[in-house]
Every structure is written in C-alpha cells, then in structure tokens.
C-alpha cells in the first residue's frame, strides 16, 4: 500500500514538473513567472505568452493525452489477454491508423481534420481485423492470447505494407507523412486534440468504472465469471474503450508505439496488478514519459529536433529489454 501511494505521489510530481518544464524550456527559455502570467494575464503582444499558450501548451497537452491513453490501453490489453506483449501498437491499432491516413491523403486528398477522422476509423478497423483473424485462428482456445499477438503482427505488417505503397507512390508528401507516421507530438495537431479529447476522457472513465472486473479478468475468464464478472460485457466495453481511446491518440499525432507496451511493465512492480491503482499510475507515468521524451527530443540534439516517437521507440526498446531480462526471465530463473 505504502509503495503504491509513494509511486502515485512521485508520478504526479514528475508529471507536474515535466509539464511546467515543457512550457518553459525550448528554443527560447520562458521564465516560470512569465509562464504563469501567460495564463493569468495573457498579453497578445507578448511573444513569450503566445509561444507558451499557442505552441507549448497544445504540445504538452497532446503529450499528456497520448501518453495517458496509450499506457492505459496497454495495461488493459495486457490484463485482458494475459499476454505481456499486448498493446495498441501490437494489435493493429497503430498500423490501421497509418494505412487509413496515408491512403486517405493519396486517394481522397484529405485535409488535416479529415486525416484525424480517417486515423480513428483506421485504428478501429485495424483492431477489429486483428480480432477477427485471431478468432479465425482459434482465440477462444488460446488462454494466453498468443493468437491475438500473432494476428496483430500479421495485420500490422499488411497495413504498414499498404501505407508504404502509398508513400512510395507520392514523393511530394512523403516527408510530412513519414514524420507523422513515426509519432510526431506537435502543436500543429492541436485542432485534432480539440476534436477528439472527449473520446479519451470517455474511454478513461469507462476503464476506471471497470477497474475491478478488469483486474479479475487477469485471473482468467472462468475465475472472473465465478467471482461475478459478466465477462462478455466487460470484455466488449473495455475493448471498445481502449480501441477508441488509443485510436484517438494515434489520430492526433501518429503511432507512438512503445508507451502502451512498456509503461505498464514499468509501473507494475510498484503498484501491482490491480487496475484500481494501475490505471491512474499508468496514466500518470505514460503522460510523464511522453512529456519528458518530447522535451528531450526538442532539446537534446539542437539545432535538430528529433521526432518524439523515434526517441520513445529507442528508449522504449532498451527499457523493454531490461524489463524482460529482469522481471520475466529473472522471475523464471528464481522460480524455476
């Protein structure tokens, strides 16, 4: 209990510090006093106020949104499938969004707002195709959800292949699209956040309500049903919430892959398996991870600005290696 409270407190503190740092640090450093002044007494003539409110604040909010939704989506999917590799990125959501956006631009010349809607539709469709393939392959007889992960890999390969085909066919837009496709937390997508934020809030609310039955589901469907969980209803509701929530996150700034996969594993040793503490811990840690990664991507390689998604993939890959080695292989060695 104490460890849980300390972790939640530390994660909240990290989020607040990273959020303020995101508003203050950049090509020009805005003193903290001026950051607060941009909110309390906004002066349209003040350049720094404009930077804080119209560039850095949307960017920070996008990072928080994407990090929280992806990490919560990851922990719920890992619990439901009882597979540590389950995440929005491994179950066709990211690839579906990418294929629909690139295809939509190429075929229908979609604008920025319509691209967001296409990404959401693609995320939903990518996930549904992944589940359909897994069911065809025998998901109901597969207690560890391996068929879901394999069909996710298959569907993702197919959809990324389609997206790449469109990219190669359209050199003029390739640079812009490649940036979005590698996960680009950027204030230019603020309009999409304004359009989609309610989907994420609704998704998190549904998952919070289902926190206890979702924890029971990690024991297996029969054990959960025996304890009183309506397994079918909880599965459908939570999958819909994850699909729409993480789909809306991908729609805003492209596929940010590793947050959903890695953050739940980082959080679990501190807060345990229960989703009542796990969901807020994942939301806080995921949001902080995206904020810190975005800050590092902007500041670490100046004058160049790295894509946040690329930095998260690099750091996430290393973190995942450490997690697998320490907690999974390590546990097997200890108990074996």
């Amino acid at each position: 209990m104490t460890r849980r409270v300390v972790f939640l407190g530390a994660a909240t503190l990290l989020l607040v510090v990273a959020f303020l740092a995101q508003l203050s640090i950049g090509a020009i450093t805005v003193p903290m006093g001026n950051v607060f002044a941009a909110f309390w007494s906004f002066d349209p003539q003040n350049y720094e106020h404009n930077v804080v409110l119209y560039q850095r604040l949307p960017r920070a909010l996008i990072a928080v949104y994407v990090g929280a939704l992806m990490a919560c989506g990851g922990t719920v999917l890992q619990g439901l499938t009882r597979n540590p590799l389950a995440a929005p990125s491994t179950l066709g959501i990211n690839a579906g969004a990418a294929a629909f956006v690139v295809g939509g631009i190429h075929l229908l010349d979609l604008g920025l707002a319509a691209q967001g809607a296409a990404a959401l539709a693609g995320a939903v469709l990518g996930f549904l195709v992944c589940v359909a393939v897994a069911r065809f392959a025998g998901l109901s007889r597969d207690p560890r959800g391996l068929s879901l992960i394999l069909s996710g890999a298959l569907v993702s390969m197919l959809l990324v292949g389609i997206a790449n085909a469109f990219l190669l066919a359209d050199p003029s837009r390739r640079t812009d699209l490649l940036s979005w496709m590698s996960g680009n937390i950027n204030h230019v997508y603020a309009d999409r956040l304004t359009s989609f934020w309610w989907i994420g809030v609704l998704s998190l609310f549904v998952l919070a309500v289902l926190a206890r039955p979702l924890t029971l589901m990690s024991l297996g469907p029969e054990q959960a049903a025996s304890a009183g969980v309506d397994v079918k209803r909880v599965t459908r509701l939570s999958l819909a919430a994850v699909m729409l929530g993480s789909g809306s996150a991908v729609a805003i700034c492209g596929p940010v892959a590793f947050v959903g996969l890695v953050v739940p594993h980082l959080v679990r040793p501190f807060v345990g398996q229960g989703q009542i503490a796990g969901l807020p811990a994942c939301a806080l840690a995921g949001a902080s991870a995206c904020l810190v990664a975005d800050l590092a991507a902007r500041q670490a390689f100046q004058p160049y600005v790295l894509n946040t998604g690329i930095l998260l993939d690099l750091v996430g890959g290393l973190a995942f290696f450490v997690i697998v080695k320490r907690y999974y292989l390590g546990t097997a060695e200890r108990t074996g």
Partner: peptide, 15 residues
C-alpha cells in the same frame, strides 16, 4: 456459488 477451476492463474505482482 463459487468455482475453483482446474488450473488457477494469477498474474505476477498480485498479492
């Protein structure tokens, strides 16, 4: 009615 299945699974870190 309570039911204990043949194979009971418990995720890591659950106390």
């Amino acid at each position: 009615v309570a039911y204990l299945p043949q194979e009971s699974h418990c995720p890591d870190y659950m106390t």
